[in-house]
Structures are given as C-alpha cells and as structure tokens.
C-alpha cells in the first residue's frame, strides 16, 4: 500500500478521535494539517508572487519598475516600528484607494443594480397569465426589508409585515442550513469512501 495512503488513513482516524473527546492525538493531527497547509501556501506564494513577479524580472530582465511594488510591500513591515509605522500608511492608502476604485463600480452593478432589476418583475406575463413567482419575490423582498427598518416601532401594519419578513428569513436560513448539512455530510462520505476503499480495501 502507498505510504501516503497509510499516513492519510491514520491522520483521518486521528482527527475523528475528537468525536470522543479532545486529546493529544487529535491535536497533533490538527497541528500537522495547519502546518502543512500553511507551508504549502507559503511556498506557492513565494514562487508566484516573489520569484515570478519580483526577483525574476529584476535579476533576469533588469526590470527596475518592480522595485516600486517591492518597496511599497516592504513599507508594510514598518508597522513593527513605533517610530516609522506611519510609513505603512502609504501602501495601505494605495491598496484601499485602488481596491475601492475597482470594487465599487463592480459591486454596485452586480450586487445592487442587477439585483434591483431582477427583483422588479411584471406580475402579468407576456401570455397574459399571472406571474406568481414575481408576487412571491416582491412580497418577500418588501416584508424582509420592513423587518430591517428600525426607524419606526414594529407595531400595527409595519409589525405584521415585518413578522411576515421573518418567515421569509427563516425559509432562507432553513434552506442554507439544509444545504450546509448536505455539504458536511458529503465531506464525511468522502472520508468514509477513502477509509473503506483506499485505506482498508473493504469495498472497490
């Protein structure tokens, strides 16, 4: 059997010992997982960010422009000095400025304008029929928004509409919870598959 499969099988069982109670075997496996994941990500970032984007252009192609992002990146470490920590504001300001400039128009379009236009659907279809889905969407949207409207006390008609909004919220949370359970079960089934087929060879 492949040594990697044996190690993975033992570590899987070690992680599941947590179901009994917290123990040193579980903690060792957990630390190994975190350490390996961090090490892997660090190596990937070192290669793709530092080597490919900074050192290689600088040393092989004499591209001096890469010194600018390199210096800006190094300025971030000035946070460790009380005297020079103000220098870190320069790259942070640049990052926030550029990030906001790129993100705001994209998010405004995708998360606000497109969502508004998708929410406003005609109640009567082209064929003359009644669009029940549109009614559900508009009632759900307005009642949920009313629930989050805190400038007036939730009494009377506002209270009733807000109450209806909570039912829509509960439907959403229920669906999300159901999908999350499904997701976690899939991960568990994946491990069972590995243990029974690759590790123990009980099933093919």
């Amino acid at each position: 059997m492949d040594i990697g499969v044996i190690i993975a099988g033992i570590l899987t069982l070690a992680i599941y010992t947590f179901l009994y109670k917290d123990n040193p075997i579980y903690r060792a496996a957990e630390s190994l997982l975190i350490g390996l994941a961090m090490g892997y990500v660090l190596v990937i970032y070192w290669q793709t960010a530092f080597m490919d984007r900074i050192f290689s252009p600088l040393l092989n192609e004499s591209d001096w422009w890469v010194l600018i992002p390199l210096i800006l990146g190094l300025l971030m470490f000035s946070r460790f000095s009380r005297k020079y920590s103000w220098l870190s504001r320069i790259p942070i300001a640049l990052m926030i400025g550029a990030g906001a400039g790129v993100a705001i128009p994209a998010m405004l379009y995708a998360r606000t304008l497109k969502q508004i236009s998708a929410s406003v659907m005609p109640l009567i279809t082209e064929s003359g029929g009644f669009n029940f889905e549109a009614l559900v969407v508009i009632v759900g949207l307005l009642s949920t928004l009313t629930y989050f409207y805190f400038s007036r006390e939730h009494k009377g008609i506002i209270g009733k509409v807000a109450k209806l909004g909570t039912y829509f919220l509960m439907l959403f949370f229920g669906a999300t919870f159901g999908y999350t359970v499904m997701s976690r079960m899939s991960t568990f089934i994946g491990r069972i598959d590995f243990l029974l087929s690759d590790f123990l060879h009980i099933i093919k």
Partner: peptide
C-alpha cells in the same frame, strides 16, 4: 462581478452545497 459585466464573459460554477444559496 469582474469578468462578467466588463468583458461579457459567461461564467458557470461547480460548488459545494453550502454555497448554493
């Protein structure tokens, strides 16, 4: 959000059930 509106790129996704909603 970034490839769609700006470059008119079609996007399809395969994802975990937890992310569907």
């Amino acid at each position: 959000e970034y490839a769609g509106p700006r470059y008119d790129q079609k996007v399809m996704t395969g994802l975990t059930a937890a992310m569907i909603t």
